[in-house]
Design a binder for these strands. Structure first.
Lengths: 237, 237
DNA sequence: GGCTCATGTAAAAGCCGTTCACATGAGCTG
DNA sequence: CAGCTCATGTGAACGGCTTTTACATGAGCC
């Protein structure tokens, strides 16, 4: 497949050459501009310069296009989370927080993907490959939670790693859904979503017995120094 | 065309009599069945037994109908949260948890309202009365957080009450969005959303220094006995 | 050159949202 | 009761969207 359609606007004839990709790109543009509901199949076709029927050669219907985008979104998401987790370096706790922030960054910087993945209303469980991609992404969070659970200080009740992972996921998702969208700017906040989530995760981790600041009386030792932060909301009075 | 609408009602003629209410009801039905995207204005009109143009006498357009539903949703939501909070009785911490559960219960039992409120994609800030209703509901959570902050044990760093309220909101919303929907059953969970959220909130509260179990070594005193629970995930090993 | 099949088009059916001119009749006024 | 008025409902129409169907094109292969 060597379409001579290299950027240089070689006028395409009857065949587009790379319509599927062009449609996915167009859909991404449109979704990020008008939301997954406002996006129309016909618009994407128009943007790609083909007739409204052409997309049906590449996607069974509109939903399948959105599912394809969600699929890609989960793949990029997984890659981003993997990178953020960085196998727990330099220390488990801070890597864990980084994962939460990566979640927010994704929601903010890739609103189209995020919408397709979480807000398009398409049933995740009806599409096995989509569900698998979703689970691969979640597996990163789960793996991080396993590591965290392994070094939780003794003497503190703690939930199974799976539950911890779900907790982190729900916090991240809650903050991202309510406050973390770049374009829509739905609700006003007296702080950044990042700070909000960071504080939330830190308090949660402290509830599990992890050292997240250095105040006397809450002493415990992480495997490595976790810095000198005392929480993003300032000192207690 | 004189099918009288409901229960043994006298023959309705040209005028419906209570179309606005009938449309809201029909829309609720349809949204809970097919989601806010699948709901159509024409369907609601059909269900109410009027022509497709009739709804425009009561709502400027489709979005305004959805906004009306969201509005009502926030009002019911506020009422439910108020009831759950019960002014902090019998003790602040358990009342606080009850609020989280009420959030979940609402998402599960009123999926149509919940969808209209949070998943319909309509801009909250464009409608002042809608935003006001939303803020009134959030004010309940905020008030609860204020009370909680007032009796947080000293010696523990803690965020402003507003931030605590946002934390609780994001946890509840995250769990509800990801796992808490009754009809759609999007994702499988090894536990109930209620248990998941309860554990999450308890760990968070412990991170703030609140007594949420009676294990030695984490002693602190709430204003009142908080029961003998050791956390919903069982004993630590 | 000629075949074949993936990939495009045009046309059409059926739906929806929305608007507009018009019809109806409920409630008021006298 | 007669008559007026206005909120409320109707029917028809426009444009746009999704999806299907029959047909056109041309790229790759013998």
């Amino acid at each position: 497949m060597s379409w001579r359609k290299d950027q240089g606007r070689a006028e395409r004839g009857y065949h587009h050459g790379n319509l599927k990709e062009a449609l996915l790109q167009a859909a991404l543009d449109l979704i990020s501009k008008k939301g997954p509901a406002g996006f129309t199949f016909a618009d994407a076709a128009r943007m790609a310069g083909v007739s409204p029927a052409a997309p049906y050669r590449h996607f069974r219907d509109r939903d399948e296009l959105i599912a394809s985008i969600a699929q890609r979104g989960f793949e990029q998401f997984e890659s981003l989370l993997t990178q953020a987790w960085d196998d727990g370096r330099p220390d488990t706790v801070s890597a864990f927080e980084r994962v939460g922030k990566a979640y927010l960054a994704f929601a903010r910087e890739e609103p189209a993907f995020y919408s397709a993945m979480f807000e398009s209303g398409l049933p995740v469980d009806s599409n096995p490959t989509l569900m698998a991609a979703s689970e691969r992404a979640f597996a990163i969070i789960r793996a991080a939670a396993e590591r965290l659970a392994a070094l939780a200080p003794p003497g503190t009740p703690r939930p199974p790693a799976m539950m911890m992972a779900l907790h982190i996921w729900s916090m991240s998702h809650g903050v991202a859904s309510l406050f973390g969208r770049g374009d829509a700017a739905r609700r006003k906040l007296p702080m950044s979503p990042e700070d909000l989530l960071e504080a939330e995760v830190l308090i949660y981790l402290r509830g599990l017995g992890f050292l997240t600041d250095r105040r006397p009386g809450t002493a415990a030792a992480d495997e490595e120094p976790a810095g000198d932060r005392s929480g993003p909301w300032g000192k207690p009075k």
